[in-house]
Design a protein around this nucleic acid. Structure first.
Length: 276
DNA sequence: CACAGCTCCTGGCAGC
DNA sequence: TGCTGCCAGGAGCTGT
């Protein structure tokens, strides 16, 4: 499941491979992948435009083909694959739902679970307007995080997963951040003290930057634009490690549910009762 | 406002 | 061996 670090790696790969190329054609094989407008409109409007900018916002990839923005959300199993030419094995793959023909390169979209979506918009805010703070931006300060935490009476994990508040964190990096900050996922957000908030802020940024540096986390499906796996799965402290020893204290990692999501934590390092 | 539950979708796995 | 059925999970939605 691509979260901020994986999407960042993919966006960098797309920029390096595709920036400046003109789009010659779009082939949509499963129309459901296009959320807005209709698949046919995408095929008709986009060709003939040049890719002038690649951005990431939260978990979204944004490709600017003036006057359009193409926004892509990979959700669970979406993949973007860059190839130097037509790739028969990808085109024979039933999970490849569309592709883009550029001057010298083809970009394939593959998605096993079909949760991912694309939007073609003229105003970027139509795609990203609801998203919250970028956790690696200068605006994401400890006091900005404190403002978010203190204005919601919610458990801290579901709050961190809410893309309208902070954009880009998913299940893996929330669990890892809370472990690093030594905070229990079920702590009520508004009860966190300034020192704990500051720890959480630092943990989020550290975990995301380290994961980007490691090329993202490949548990099963994640691949970058050049089909390379990430290496950050080897550095995970708690995610997917139920029963294995906590890297900090050695106690077995525990699996619980938080906000309906599978959640991993160290019961010793992350006590539910806030320290006195 | 908070949140539980449902939907989408399919590979992987447990159970028989 | 092969079948059935259940689960994960990001985000949007409805209902409480």
């Amino acid at each position: 499941m691509p979260e901020l670090p994986e999407v960042e790696r993919i966006a960098r790969g797309l920029e390096q491979a595709l920036l400046g190329q003109c789009l010659k054609g779009v082939t949509v094989r499963w129309p459901g992948v296009v959320a807005r407008p209709e698949a046919k409109a995408l095929e008709e409007r986009l060709p003939g435009h040049r890719l002038e900018e690649v951005r990431r916002r939260g978990k979204m990839i944004l490709l600017r083909f003036p006057p359009w923005w193409l926004a892509i959300h990979l959700r669970m199993t979406g993949q973007l694959q860059v190839r130097p030419g037509r790739d028969p094995s990808l085109e024979a793959d039933r999970h490849v739902h569309l592709w883009f023909d550029f001057d010298h390169t083809i970009l394939y979209y593959r998605d096993m679970r079909k949760f991912g979506r694309l939007w073609l918009v003229s105003d970027l805010a139509e795609a990203t307007g609801q998203l919250g703070l970028e956790p690696l931006s200068p605006e994401f300060t400890p006091s900005a995080l404190a403002r978010i935490l203190k204005t919601h009476r919610r458990q801290v994990k579901p709050l961190l997963l809410d893309q309208r508040l902070i954009a880009g964190l998913g299940n893996i990096y929330v669990d890892e951040s809370l472990w690093r900050a030594q905070l229990h996922p079920l702590r009520l957000a508004h009860t966190l003290r300034d020192e704990e908030i500051s720890r959480l802020h630092g943990a989020i940024q550290h975990v995301l930057l380290q994961a980007i540096d490691h090329g993202g986390t490949t548990l099963r499906d994640y691949r970058d634009a050049h089909d390379e796996k990430g290496r950050h799965q080897e550095a995970l402290a708690v995610y997917g490690r139920a029963g294995l020893p906590c890297p900090r204290c050695g106690a077995p990692i525990v699996y619980i549910r938080a906000g309906g999501r599978g959640t991993h934590l160290c019961p010793i390092c992350q006590p539910l009762a806030p320290p006195k």
